[in-house]
Amino acid sequence: MASDTPKASGQAEPPRLLLVTRSPPYGSSLARSALDTALAAAAFDMAPALLFLDHGVLQLLPQQEGAASETRSHGKVLDSLPLYDIDRIYVDAAALLHFGLQDMPLPAAAEVVDSTGIRALLEGCDHILSF
């Protein structure tokens, strides 16, 4: 995280934060870092929007069994996002197609976005963190 400071407006409105997560859930710690950052930001009343891009869509597969690899289930932690008031979730349409996951059930709050929609998300926030 760079030296992000709240908007200089002096108003109480928190900065709009977008987290872009492009990694699969296992095999590296990046996806987990994105999720931990999201939960921490939410605890600061800055519930971020989450954009699942590229391999990031693989985090959304249902029925992940973390126990099979003695790790925590990334999918189960994602299930807790509504309790953290994180309810803006965007999913890369092209990536779903690439992995043959276009029929996969998505979180209730999720919205599938195309390239134009992704651009709009990037423009519509104050800070972007990529994982």
């Binding site: 699969p24 859930p25 597969l61 249902p62 029925q63 992940q64 099979a68 690899s69 289930s73 999918g75």
Partner: peptide, 13 residues
């Protein structure tokens, strides 16, 4: 590898 497929949630599909 079965354990990896189950971890990822791939097994059901």
């Amino acid at each position: 590898l079965e354990d990896d497929a189950r971890t990822a949630g791939v097994t059901p599909q």
